[in-house]
């Protein structure tokens, strides 16, 4: 039997983290949570997760973006799927949507999801991305 995939959440909301730990744990994931940006990068390279879920707005409005960019700069992490969660995307409308397209490209974000997201929605995207990244690894 394959080893459980490791999913790493970076979010400053501890309730969200504890709920995801329970939910993804019950779906066969090994869940690692990081509740602050400080030291998150080190934790990520240490843990080597299969997939990362980042909250966009932590200490600063763009903490998530800066962190994902740094993750991408680590060759070992360059291909790990990153899902970005945000509570502001829809509210800001067009302009932000366009920025996200540019940013997705820039930091090679794999998905952008609006909060509040359900665990099921998140699980579906995570499974998709892991499947996709497995295929990409097989063909690459």
């Amino acid at each position: 039997m394959a080893k459980s995939p490791k999913i790493l959440f970076v979010d400053d909301d501890r309730d969200f983290l504890s709920a995801q730990t329970a939910f993804f744990g019950s779906h066969g994931f090994e869940v690692v949570t990081v509740d602050r940006v400080d030291g998150a990068l080190e934790r990520i390279s240490e843990e080597k997760p299969e997939i990362i879920v980042l909250d966009l707005m932590m200490e600063h409005y763009d903490s998530g973006f800066m962190l994902s960019r740094k993750i991408r700069q680590d060759p070992a992490m360059a291909k790990v799927p990153i899902l970005m969660l945000s509570g502001v995307a829809s509210a800001t409308g067009h302009k932000f949507a366009a920025e996200i397209t540019a940013l997705k490209d820039w930091i090679k974000l794999d998905a952008f999801l609006d909060k509040p997201v359900t665990g099921r929605q998140l699980l579906k995207v995570v499974e998709d991305k892991l499947g996709l990244s497995k295929e990409a690894a097989a063909t690459g």
């Binding site: 939910f23 509040p116 665990g119």
Partner: peptide, 10 residues
């Protein structure tokens, strides 16, 4: 709301 939804979903 995101946190509440996740907590209930558990």
């Amino acid at each position: 709301l995101g946190a509440i939804r996740s907590l209930i979903e558990v």
